[in-house]
Design a protein around this nucleic acid. Sequence first.
RNA 1: UCCGGUGUAGCUCAGUUGGUUAGAGCAGCGGACUGUUAAUCCGCGUGGCGUAAGUUCGAGUCUUACCACCGGAGCCA
Length: 436
Amino acid sequence: MVEKEHLNTTLICRIQEHANQSVTLNGWVYNSRRSGKIGFLLLRDGTGTIQCIIVKNDVGEDQFESFKSLTQESSLSVSGTVVENERAPGGFEIQVNTLTIHQVSEEYPITPKEHGTEFLMNNRHLWLRSKRQHAILKIRHEIIKATRDFFDSNDFTLVDTPILTPNVCEGTTTLFETEYFGQRAFLAQSGQLYGEANAFAFGRQYNFGPTFRAEKSKTRRHLLEFWMVEPEIAYCDLDEDMVWAEKMLEFIVQRVLENRKFELEILERDTSMLEKVKAPFPRISYTECVDMLKEGGFDFQWGGDFGSPEETYISEKFDRPVFVHRFPSAIKAFYMKRDPENEDLVMGMDVLAPEGYGEIIGGSEREADHDTLLKRINADGLSLDDFQWYLDLRKYGSVPHAGFGMGLERTVTWICKLSHLRETIPFPRMYGRLRP
RNA sequence: UCCGGUGUAGCUCAGUUGGUUAGAGCAGCGGACUGUUAAUCCGCGUGGCGUAAGUUCGAGUCUUACCACCGGAGCCA
């Protein structure tokens, strides 16, 4: 921790350490009210908000006049005494001696009233200052930190994977294409294949970075640029893969419950559902799901891929996240290991979040045999040039290995119980929106 | 790309079966108030009714096309 004497700023989140002391706070006007000769200024500094009291008889005519000139989001510093007062939101307030205005804000577009999402998204650079957005992004940060802490404390190494790639990883989705000095290149849709190389070098690795999919998706569950954490574990089978996934989710949710109570309250999140997120999670096979769907009145044939309504139906049957495993091989990627007991199935799994949120994790045990994998690559019509290095992994000490990818924004959406994932990333990239 | 919905002031919306001057709240500006919590009270302003064409004596209101946005499907994390 950097010692206080080196720093210019006292933070509002630390204000209780300064009770009855003189402090200077630097921030912005969140709201201000006046009642004759007493003024109430809600100051925001990014770590919290605190009420500042400006009394005309204490600060003098000039200072009071400059207080009156303040508009929403004007920047200023206030000096005064920290006092405990139960009338103040937060319990502490500042009795102001002096205030220094840095800039009087022009008419601020985001008012305390309601706004539509298009307007707010156009003003995303300002919207981030609002209470609700602030709470969501604080929880996002907590989830990222918990994820890293979970893997770090379980002997994983963070090994980053490239964003510019020559190959089409799964060959199913459309990728953003760019030019790499005369060669075709793509923005990575996953770091998984590189993660497998890393796992054979480090044993347990995870990568955590942005991924890109050039789909014209117009739903509440899709972004074109989103963040994914992808652990990959050597000497790991599907069963152990599921244990890693459920222990990770349990850890993340507990951390958010412990450290982000205030933010969950702002979002009016009912935490009773989150408290139930304890391992082990139910494990049901794809085939069992098909039966559940048929019983539920769905017209669904074995072999088809679950759409969003199917996922929602299944996840609502359980009070905690649920694993769906062993999908038909025909609908899954070439690198997934076939079920030794049934060639028509792959050793893959998805995690469906509760409360109808659907898929947040997709993973599998990978095909470890060189010749089998080569056959799949050829069958899918993928370029051998691009996958030679990947096949190499099966030539030099191949072992059973497994991993999964968790969509960060989908996880944040579920934990915050939002109706749309666009608020879970500071600057969302969606179909039809590149700015701001 | 397909299906459904919306488009009126800076923002959120109202606007009757088409009828002549287009309406409210918030934000903004001026004033009152020494404990406000989206403060309250008084006063002041703002409009190419998404764009283009059509029907009609008359269109914010009806018709068609286009555009933008929202929701859903597909793709998936």
